[in-house]
Design a protein around this nucleic acid. Sequence first.
RNA 1: GGAGCGGUGGCCGAGUGGACGAAGGCGGCAGUCUUGAAAACUGCUGACCCUCCGGGGUCCGUGGGUUCGAAUCCCACCCGCUCCGCCA
Length: 432
Amino acid sequence: MLDIRLIRSDPGAVKAALDRRGPGTSDGVDDVVAQDAEQRRLVASRDETRSRIKSLSREVGRLRGEGRADEAEAAMAQSRSLGDEEEALAKAAAELADGIRAALLGLPNLPSEEAPDGAGEQDNVVLRTEGYDAAAYGEHQRVPHWEIGAELGILDNERATRISGSMFTMYRGWGARLLRAMVQLSLDRNADAYEEVRPPTLVRTQTMTSTGHLPKFADEAYHVERDDLWAIPTAEVPLTSLHGDEILDGADLPLRYMAYTSCFRREAGSAGKDTRGLLRVHEFDKVELLAVAAGREQAIACQRDVLARGEGLLRDLGLAYRVVDLCTAELGNSAARTWDIEAYAPGVDQWLEVSSVSWFGDYQARRANIRYRAAEGSGRGTEVAHTVNGSAMGWPRTVAAYLETHRQLDGSVAIVEALRPYVAGADRIVSR
RNA sequence: GGAGCGGUGGCCGAGUGGACGAAGGCGGCAGUCUUGAAAACUGCUGACCCUCCGGGGUCCGUGGGUUCGAAUCCCACCCGCUCCGCCA
């Protein structure tokens, strides 16, 4: 949610920044400005009326105490008639406030001025590519992961579909074990700075609203209507709300958390797109890293840290990857700046998005109401925190890139050094 | 799911419908004393919104209601605790 004070004081700059995402993004800002002015006018006269009612009421008590019943009666009558006035003003002000809040919830975040301008995917900027050499891949690596999975008996999407429908996956045997090894590696590598959390995967509407997944993207999430709970699309959702409605001590920031959870996405509108194998599924696993920071500078340092950790894990797995700076048109609704990490999968010859590392400014923290008290003597009171998050590792696609990259001439798949401690030292996956 | 009790400031906790934004304590900050620290004593110490910077207003789980006036009375909901039932 954008700061209404910023919109009020400089609507032109807000509109210009929003429109960098695409034409028409700032529609509604003028409306908000007008409604806000009217709402404040109403609140001012409501407050004035209330103040008069309060002093009259005190007067009633005092007059009664002094036995001046007639005068008390007169004050009561006057106060009563002011009451109707106050009620009407309060109702009008509250309705406007609801409307303003709804409009604000619908506005996306301002892109960082450092995010590259652009109109679509083609305008994303590749910052760097690591470990990629097209000529280095042999024919044995040009096999799509679903074939490798079937050959080795480690992926069983056919039966997953029978159990849950299309775009669900199932790991079996070494597939499940490889996944578990990667999860453990991801958590262990980040335990030095991030507290491990196992949050709930079903959350309230308020929790989904805080990260910006609601109200705009309700169609993307699974909703348990009977209990009004939402299946999280990412651990970012519960982790962001971990400190919701709290005032943190600025000296404790940044706070860093990581969580391994299942993630659920309806992928509405993408049926039939990239659906082969593990490229796009409704339920997947992910280790998410998240930081709550004090201000821009600290937040950006945290974002760099998350990115470095995501890259480090891909290097541990021996995968080629590139880092992409998303252009303004491709930024998620809540993000100010996002770096995607894409792993190269030789079998399908695609760069697969395996991590998305975003800085949200105070947009999410304002929705979640996460504040912090600045250092003593800084002359500042409580401030809205900044949030940052990104995947340490996200699964089906990482497994896809892994299987294709490490497939050997004999059809087995090598287990890299970093994973061996988690698989009792085994060094390859062979057909059973 | 049923019954009972409860939800008050950073924390604990008091609060007969009338000066209650709220006693008291703890914690925190500042000062006195001290070479320094501790102890003792004194003072200060919530968040948020608006402002013509004088001030005004909102907030006692949430939302309604009663009343001239609600932390206090009524209703609904949420959360917690205890017991019963059910259950992995």
